[in-house]
Design a protein around this nucleic acid. Structure first.
Length: 271
DNA sequence: CTTTTGACCTGACAGC
DNA sequence: TGCTGTCAGGTCAAAA
């Protein structure tokens, strides 16, 4: 489920329900996520106000008065505002219980997600300190990508998905952005011209921004309901369309694997 | 340093 | 109806 637009949508959807509220406790039903949920999480967060909810890469950062929660949705996680008395499903692993009878409930069937706690500068946390640029920031441009790709032999698609270069570009949007930029996913990153990186950065920004807008339409349903409709409403140009005809040239969309991930592209439109 | 591979975990689905 | 194998939106850690 979660690429950057979904995490951003989650962040915006949760914020009005929890900013300024106090956490009563944390209820951990299953601590075995990507990393163990801290055993003392409830004691750490109890009684503290939620000061802000922000996003860095695909991490959600919940700033409390005396520490910070770092949340990640992994491959299958979702966060929802629920009545704290509502029965938990098998994959509802953590509730952050608020002072108004609701909770932020983490559901994550595959348990690749994370709930971590830090009292240090969160941006210096080992998971966050070496992250690349935000794709929607002003500094993310052709000059940046061109510069850090010099000498790199990895394919442009693998390069795009490297979070030390740029964050938030997952498998779906890497495929889609390369189609929009007309770039073959297998091209070595170090061989692309600045001009082609300009097309690519424009494509990445446009696609992510559009996906976030689409996700925004689901925000009003964020409480007690599925907040995922916006995601599936996207009409993909290549992702998941192998064997189907290209929406631009009508040629056949091809499928291949790059580093255990599925790649889809149009051999005619992407060179 | 860069690049590749394995690992984590469950659920859905295709094919026998 | 089972069973087995493959695949899925992420990304760290270890090996090469």
């Amino acid at each position: 489920m979660p690429e950057l637009p979904e995490v951003e949508t989650t962040c915006r959807g949760l914020a009005p329900h929890c900013i300024g509220r106090h956490l009563v406790t944390a209820l951990v039903r299953n601590a075995q996520l990507r990393w163990p949920v801290p055993a003392d999480l409830a004691q750490q967060v109890a009684g503290q106000a939620i000061l802000s909810l922000t996003r860095r890469a695909k991490y959600l950062i919940v700033t409390l008065q005396r520490g910070t929660l770092i949340l990640h949705l992994g491959m299958s996680g979702s966060l929802r505002i629920m009545d704290s008395n509502s029965p938990a499903g098998v994959h509802d692993h953590v509730d952050l219980v608020l002072d108004n009878g609701t909770c932020i409930r983490l559901r994550d069937p595959r348990r690749f997600g994370a709930v971590l706690w830090t009292q240090s500068d969160v941006l210096r946390h080992p998971l966050l300190e070496n992250l690349g640029l935000e794709p929607l920031s002003d500094t993310f441009d052709a000059h940046y990508l061109h510069g850090c790709s010099r000498g790199r032999k990895v394919s442009i698609k693998t390069f795009l998905m490297d979070s030390h270069v740029v964050v938030g570009v997952g498998n779906i949007y890497a495929n889609e952005a390369l189609f929009h930029a007309g770039i073959r996913p297998t091209t070595p990153a170090g061989r692309l011209s600045r001009t082609r990186y300009a097309r690519l950065t424009t494509a990445i920004r446009a696609i992510l921004a559009r996906a976030i807008e689409a996700g925004g339409s689901t925000l009003r349903d964020f409480v007690n309901s599925a907040g995922e409709a916006g995601y599936f409403q996207q009409q993909y140009m290549v992702y998941g369309r192998s064997g189907e005809s290209c929406r631009v040239c009508a040629g056949s969309i091809k499928h291949m694997r790059q580093g255990q991930r599925s790649t889809f592209y149009c051999p005619h439109c992407q060179t």
